[in-house]
């Protein structure tokens, strides 16, 4: 028996509507296949990072501190 894909074309349509991203119907199934390959691993990583040992971990994201002199301070 075939298992249900993690993401199907209908899910993609909904997500694209929320993102206001126009998509041709033929692209929905291709995106569903791609996201079905990616998202289980992304969710597993999210679950790992939700463990208590990582509670204090901050994301590595760029927060630029401009040169104060350039800002005239």
């Amino acid at each position: 028996m075939m298992s249900e894909p993690f993401v199907n074309a209908k899910d993609v349509r909904l997500l694209a509507r929320i993102a206001q991203l126009p998509l041709d119907p033929e692209r929905e199934s291709r995106l569903a296949d791609l996201l079905s390959a990616w998202l289980p691993d992304a969710n597993a990583l999210s679950a790992k990072m939700a463990a208590p040992e990582f509670r204090e971990v901050l994301p590595i994201t760029l927060f630029a501190h401009p040169d104060h002199r350039e800002e005239g301070q």
Binding site: A42, L45, M49, A50, F54, L58, P59, I60, T61
Partner: peptide, 9 residues
Amino acid sequence: LQAQRYRAV
């Protein structure tokens, strides 16, 4: 953001 937190680890 979880991926960015994972990077720190």
